[in-house]
């Protein structure tokens, strides 16, 4: 399959000398990498490789021991707390689908839109702003859940919850969109649908980071991949080349 050339847009995310430790256990010893705007960047690696931990460090769930994380060249993410990072343009889908189960699909989306990022009270007061409904309608179409808009999110199928969560992030138009195993537990049809969704989300002003175990899926959507093992990047490049790489093969098959 023909690959798009690696987009050479400006730096969206820059991770420098990142070190994350839990007590004595070092999950990520020293990691540096770059994701450009316009790019879909895959991160793969066996269980426990540190993929989710990397997202935790970028979003603020975990505080790294060392390193620097820059968004859009200028924003020092480590200086911000979790909500501030989200408002700065970092959107994250969790590994386990995380939606507000008692709220309807539409309410989940509407809650995600921040028209007044500086004040929660302001946001709530402007709840019935027509832009909120309009944007939710757009996203409902985009994620294919328009027919389920009034359904409580808890009643959705697993795959639909994943799409809803991606939709919530889209409401925010993030600069950096990070998806932790978006197709885990999905049927083949759902996976194909998700791949299509992600391809449509690619935009010059957005960088997308996808963590996934499904290599065919990653090959289909990602321009470049980073292979993590024990928190170290052991390969960076095209997925097709990763499959042929001796160390990658060893990590995945060799033990």
């Amino acid at each position: 399959m023909d690959k798009v050339e690696v987009p050479s847009g400006d730096q969206a995310l820059r991770v420098d000398g990142l070190r994350v430790a839990f007590g004595d256990f070092v999950a990520i010893p020293n990691l540096s990498f770059l994701v450009n705007f316009g790019e879909v960047h895959g991160v793969i690696g066996p269980n426990g490789a540190g993929k989710t931990t990397l997202l935790d460090a970028i979003t603020g769930k975990t505080r790294p021991a060392e390193g620097r994380i820059l968004l859009n060249r200028t924003t020092d993410l480590l200086a911000l707390d979790e909500p501030e990072r989200a408002l700065a343009g970092v959107g994250r889908k969790f590994q386990k689908p995380s939606v507000f189960e008692a709220l309807s699909v539409r309410e989940n989306l509407e809650l995600a839109l921040r028209l007044r990022p500086r004040s929660i009270l302001g946001e709530l007061r402007n709840w019935s702003d027509p832009r909120r409904k309009a944007r939710a309608d757009e996203v409902l179409d985009e994620i294919g859940l328009a027919a389920r808009a009034e359904t409580p999110a808890g009643a959705l199928a697993h795959g639909q919850k994943q799409w809803l969560e991606i939709g919530m992030l889209l409401m925010q138009r993030p600069k950096l969109l990070m998806l932790d195993e978006p197709v885990a537990g999905m049927t083949a049809t759902e996976t194909a649908h998700t791949a299509e969704l992600i391809r449509r989300l690619r935009a010059p002003e957005r960088a997308i980071l996808v963590i996934e175990h499904d290599m065919d899926f990653v090959e289909e959507i990602a321009d470049r991949v980073t292979v993590l093992h024990g928190g170290d990047p052991i390969f960076e490049g095209r997925m097709a080349d990763a499959r042929a790489d001796a160390r990658v093969r060893e990590v995945y098959l060799g033990r």
């Binding site: 979790e82 909500p83 189960e101 709220l103 809650l111 929660i120 709530l124």
Partner: peptide
């Protein structure tokens, strides 16, 4: 029944998700 009520339910259902959507949940 207000939007504040929805925010409360969201906190109950998944506070972490809400924080990562940019809401400082401390205040509500």
């Amino acid at each position: 029944s207000t939007s504040f009520g929805r925010l409360l339910i969201a906190i109950r259902d998944d506070e972490a998700r809400l924080r990562f959507l940019g809401y400082e949940t401390l205040w509500p």
